[in-house]
Amino acid sequence: MSDPAPLPILKGTLDNLVLKALCWTPMHGFEITQWVEARSRDALDIRDSALYQALRRLEERELVTGEWGITENNQRARYYRITRAGRARLASDTAQWVRYAKTVTDILTSTPGPA
């Protein structure tokens, strides 16, 4: 299967991807990029700056908190941690996304016929 062109990301979904990434462990910005890229297998076209914007947004809404820490290579980095509110938001957004995607998929893939 040849690589198709990367998909432009739908508005708002990046926030959820970042929250999902932070579900396991606090990460700094670059780690989050790595995590998303690894899982999307580069199918999503995400500007790195967009990721940082998402982080600011989430931090402002208190869905994540950021604090300074030290990387394995002894570098100062800002680590982000998901908050309780962030987990709740991720859960509800995920459920909604799944229902939405399923409904749309069902319609788009059904055989045409009268309702």
Binding site: G29, F30, Y52, W68, R76, A77, R78
Partner: peptide
């Protein structure tokens, strides 16, 4: 300064 630092680190790691 921290904000600048964060971007710098990202670019360095990339």
């Amino acid at each position: 300064r921290d904000a600048d630092e964060e971007i710098r680190l990202h670019l360095e790691l990339r």
